[in-house]
Design a protein around this nucleic acid. Sequence first.
DNA 1: GGAAATTGTGGGCAATTGTGGATTTTTAAG
DNA 2: CTTAAAAATCCACAATTGCCCACAATTTCC
Lengths: 150, 150
Amino acid sequence: MFRGISSLTLDSKGRLAVPARHREALARQCQGQLVVTVDYDGCLLLYPLPEWEEIERKLVRLPSFNEHSRRMQRVLLGHASECELDGNGRVLLPPPLRAYANLDKAVVLVGQGNRFEIWDEATWNSRRGEWLAAGVGGGNVPPEIESLSL
Amino acid sequence: MFRGISSLTLDSKGRLAVPARHREALARQCQGQLVVTVDYDGCLLLYPLPEWEEIERKLVRLPSFNEHSRRMQRVLLGHASECELDGNGRVLLPPPLRAYANLDKAVVLVGQGNRFEIWDEATWNSRRGEWLAAGVGGGNVPPEIESLSL
DNA sequence: GGAAATTGTGGGCAATTGTGGATTTTTAAG
DNA sequence: CTTAAAAATCCACAATTGCCCACAATTTCC
């Protein structure tokens, strides 16, 4: 279970150094084999290969002639790139994906259970500000959240 | 059940020394394994690991494509960092979380049942003033509070 | 058209810096 | 006065960053 946020900087070649505290888990779970793809909200998603393959299986089974399915397959499958941790615990993020998420130097890596999200740091901070300002109430809040007790 | 407030100071490395009276309980409940995350009200939440894992299970089960769920997962799971009590009874608070809650030197640790809250001391004092001034009446008070007998 | 050279990209190595842990001293409380 | 807790200083290990080398691909010249 991946959790927690880390503030990181990409090196001059667009490589992201995974924080040491996550490396052991990644080595164990997937021998450093990762998949990066894009998210609809403007960040990148980083999956251990086995986790991604499961999602991929669900994606390719979606009905071929449904407009939403095709879109989702093009966005998610289409951008999915395999990459692996090098000897120094770094992953090279493909230039098109870096461009998509506006990643330059300062980024944050956010643990989200079975995956990580990678955000441009400024984008993350401003989006987080909006989420916090909006609070928990509002539109259509699922009942699971209404009854959630922290 | 954690109760009571303590006025504390972070050391130069951002470590918080847990008051001695709570240490024994934490050692017993979770062998010093803790999780810190953020709260929507601008403070940090400190959980014994098992307590947090229960909340985490609920969080990851929320629907993936609901906007509110995603936000809540990003805020709560995304900031949740594991840390543990060192030999001196201190926890290192990760820099991004310290930044979030504006923690510098003077902080307060507030027992809240199954967790602690960590506030910047000045923020705590001014917020507490607002809560007291607002009193109990007002907007939409849930019936559970209306009928509460102290 | 083929071959060679140069440039760009990816990976590995090494050094420096920062972080985490331990020890010691001081202060406060009993 | 004694003991325990808190704070500050110091040391060591490890992580991160910058640099260098090697391989590959593309382009240019013969």
